[in-house]
């Protein structure tokens, strides 16, 4: 028997798992091999040391076990009569917390967008609304028609004027309450500008460019007519009329 095979068998022999015939061969090998004898002695010493150094439990182990077992049984049974018992885990708690936090965050963002907007000046609002036409009336909190120092509540729709005196269905309002929607929350974009005003300005720019084009054409026509007049013999024309 070779040593590496004998070392395999030594482990099985220690556990009494070796067949009798192999045990005889191993014993013969051990008698003649000091190295394998030392190997076996080391393994047996290791086993002795292992069993000699068995760790000891703490004295209060059973007390703690009883306590933990009681808590587990209470939790398993769903008992809530004991105030010291740990509550059952709440799986939806994070959702509720997150939902509340998300709602508060949204409210804060909306509040910032509304109240920190660049055009939110009540005094200017009243002036812009009432200054478009002499007949425009703004009713303030105090009810005075021309009082622009107060926050305007609403504008008389029937007497509302347009921008620069031009009749328009969407008058400019630089802040305050919108006349069309009744709420400034929906009249503003994220930049803080009043979206109704932007639409009105864009429409007026289109109208102005159209007017400029018409004016240019009319000027061209007048100039052509003047040229024709210069070439006509006015004396002959006057004689004909007479």
């Amino acid at each position: 028997m070779r040593c590496h095979k004998a070392k395999d068998y030594i482990s099985q022999e220690m556990d009494e798992h070796l067949p009798p015939d192999v045990t005889v061969n191993l014993t013969e090998h051990l008698d003649s091999c000091a190295d394998c004898r030392r190997f076996r002695a080391d393994l047996l010493l290791g086993r002795r040391a292992m069993s000699a150094t068995t760790p000891e439990l703490p004295e209060n182990f059973e007390w703690k076990l009883q306590l933990k077992l009681n808590q587990t049984l209470q939790r398993t049974a769903g008992e809530t009569a004991y105030p010291w018992a740990e509550p059952a885990p709440d799986n939806w708690r994070w959702f509720r917390n997150f939902g509340a936090a998300a709602a508060m965050g949204m409210a804060a963002v909306l509040a910032l967008a509304v109240f920190l907007g660049p055009d939110n000046v009540p005094g200017e609002s009243g002036q812009a609304l009432s200054g478009g036409t002499s007949s425009g009336v703004v009713r303030s909190i105090s009810g005075g028609a021309g009082n622009t120092d107060r926050l305007p509540l609403f504008v008389d729709q029937s007497r509302r004027g347009g921008f620069y005196g031009v009749g328009s269905q969407h008058p400019v309002s630089a802040g305050g309450f919108s006349q069309s929607s009744g709420s400034r929350f929906f009249d503003r974009g994220w930049s803080g500008h009043n979206t109704n005003d932007l639409r009105t300005i864009q429409r007026l720019r289109i109208q102005n460019s159209q007017l400029n084009r018409d004016l240019f054409q009319q000027q061209q026509m007048i100039q052509g007519m003047r040229g024709q007049l210069d070439t006509v013999d006015t004396n002959a024309l006057e004689l004909e009329l007479e």
Partner: peptide, 12 residues
């Protein structure tokens, strides 16, 4: 078990 014993022997 055999391998563990050999390793244990080296370590002790």
């Amino acid at each position: 078990i055999n391998r563990a014993r050999n390793k244990f022997r080296q370590l002790i």
